[in-house]
């Protein structure tokens, strides 16, 4: 009864590291509709377990719609066992996309925590056409959560990596990387990752008077803005992550 429901066939379900997978989905007319920052709402099993769909940011939208996921629970474990050729029910692309940086922006800094890096590849596919200096700050738990970021580099991104245990890149939080880069003002920020990280980015950018956008994650039921289950507090009142977001103005989110 809704316009954006697709039965997708799985083209590939590639293991990127011991923890991260990339699932490639295909359905007629699906990939053409994707804008960077949007997500898909995936029914990982046809039965009742798990009960809800699972929302995933769109990582890549070239020939297929690709999602990047970490195996963290039942839903993602079931997803990791899917084979090429199986079909899967998806709603999407859903939500609003990233907006372009304001005119005059010289530098774009993307701050990602874990699989929060996912929406930024599609974003750099668009941003590389402009003359911004692109910087990706990627923070992960350990080296098992760090995959090849060569596509980001190919899109002209400077990549800086931090891991919590120091097993790859700098030891520490992604926020520590931020203080190490040279800002080429005017700088514009995009961020996606766990809430404590977004809060930290919000504080850092507020003191430096930088603006930007954040992509948020929430438990969702409908995914299309009708159940109001994924609402978060913003300076404009409650807003749904699925329909009013997932992309919000960085400073309007109340964490």
């Amino acid at each position: 009864m809704i316009k954006c429901q697709y039965t997708c066939s799985i083209v590939k379900n590639q293991k990127m590291t011991s923890r991260l997978f990339c699932l490639s989905l295909k359905a007629p007319g699906f990939v053409q509709r994707v804008l960077p920052g949007q997500f898909v709402h995936v029914r990982v099993a046809n039965g009742l377990k798990p009960f809800f769909r699972r929302p995933f940011s769109i990582f890549r939208a070239q020939k297929t719609v690709d999602i990047l996921y970490d195996v963290v629970g039942l839903g993602t474990r079931i997803l990791s066992e899917k084979k090429k050729g199986e079909s899967i029910d998806c709603l999407g692309p859903l939500g609003i996309s990233f907006r372009l940086p304001p005119p005059g922006t010289k530098q774009v800094v993307m701050i990602a925590g874990g699989v929060g890096v996912a929406p930024f590849l599609a974003l750099t596919d668009v941003l590389k056409k402009e003359k911004y200096q692109l910087v990706l700050l990627y923070g992960a738990r350990d080296k098992d959560h760090v995959f090849s970021l060569k596509e980001f580099r190919k899109n002209g991104c400077q990549v800086h990596i931090a891991t919590d245990d120091g097993s790859h890149g700098v030891k520490g939080r992604v926020s520590a990387l931020f203080s190490k880069i040279n800002l080429k003002m005017p700088t514009y920020i995009y961020t996606c990752g766990p809430k404590p990280m977004i809060k930290c980015v919000q504080d850092l950018t507020r003191t430096q008077h930088l603006s930007g956008q954040a992509s948020l994650e929430e438990v969702m039921a409908c995914g299309v803005g009708v159940c109001l289950g994924c609402s978060i507090k913003t300076t404009k009142g409650f807003r749904t992550v699925c329909h009013d977001g997932p992309v919000f103005d960085l400073q309007e989110i109340i964490l």
Binding site: F51, F52, L228, S231
Partner: peptide, 19 residues
């Protein structure tokens, strides 16, 4: 305005909501 988040949780064969 509705209730503070989280407003929904998945349970065995169902969900609990407090919208």
């Amino acid at each position: 305005e509705g209730n503070p988040s989280p407003r929904i949780v998945e349970t065995a064969s169902g969900m609990i909501n407090a919208i």
